[in-house]
Amino acid sequence: MTKYIIRRLLQTIPVLIGVSILVFSLMHLIPGDPAQIIAGEGAPEKTVEQIRERLGLNEPIHKQYLNYMSGVVQGDLGNSVRSGRPVVDEIKTRFWVTLELATYATILAVFIGLMAGIISAVRHYTFTDTAIMIVALFGLSMPNFWLGLVLIDWFAIGGDWLPAWAKLRPSGWGDSWRQVVLPVITLGTGGAAIIARMTRSSMLEVIGQDYIRTARAKGLTDRVITYRHALKNALIPVVTVVGLEFGGFLGGAVLTETIFAINGMGRLTVQAINTRDFPIVQGAVLVISVLFVFVNLIVDISYKLLNKRIDLG
């Protein structure tokens, strides 16, 4: 197992290098000269040249990349061209907000998704099953931003039960859990629906397996059969989906953060794009990508742990 984890870790290195090259070149392929943008339109050629020199933009592109990367490995993502502050500092506070949002959304999605999926599978082809699956279909087909707006309308404007605006503290969320509720529901609902459907079909498949019949022939209770024998097998494909969902939440937070005015990574990126703050965009995309790669790694490892049949060699 340790061997597998080490091998898997080594495999992420080329992936990470690839990601960084991609992110770096994307920024440089976008038309427009960053130095010109920073200097402002109509700025004298001399000023632009100075900025270019200061930012190292006049060097050949591979050299720029290496410079950038040598900074990255030392934890330096450059400075924001707007505020002049280090990108790392700008991202740091926002990063935890998004990570927290995505984590809560994942917990919600897993909790509701698993429960609904299991109940549906155990009572398959009954009214409960149909009802759950219809709700799941709604959850799946509802666009995030629409759900967010509806929730704000019902709970924040109509009922004034829960706040619509999540205020940012440097350390994360506001004092009250109440601020978290609506954004997490908005972000997590689609994932919950996907996990519910996945759990149901996976459970149904497992329940039909020979070893479940064996478990019944042993005289075990339905509870033990469902939660011990069936669920552990059924979870194997679900884990992959959960991992993908978590990754999706990180990226998908953009909309939710915009609707609820949450100062997370998503909102930061959108703002940076609007203001052509390339170092920020670059840094944010890189951080999210790296996170995504590691989430995938964790998914793969837990998949192995759950599924002992897969050859570990």
Binding site: D210, Y211, R213, A217, K308
Partner: peptide, 19 residues
């Protein structure tokens, strides 16, 4: 079941829980 009356099945490859 599994106590006074036990049962074994045809497919040994799939009758045991893999996990």
């Amino acid at each position: 079941r599994g106590n006074k009356i036990s049962m074994i099945f045809q497919e040994p490859m799939t009758s045991l829980n893999p996990v």
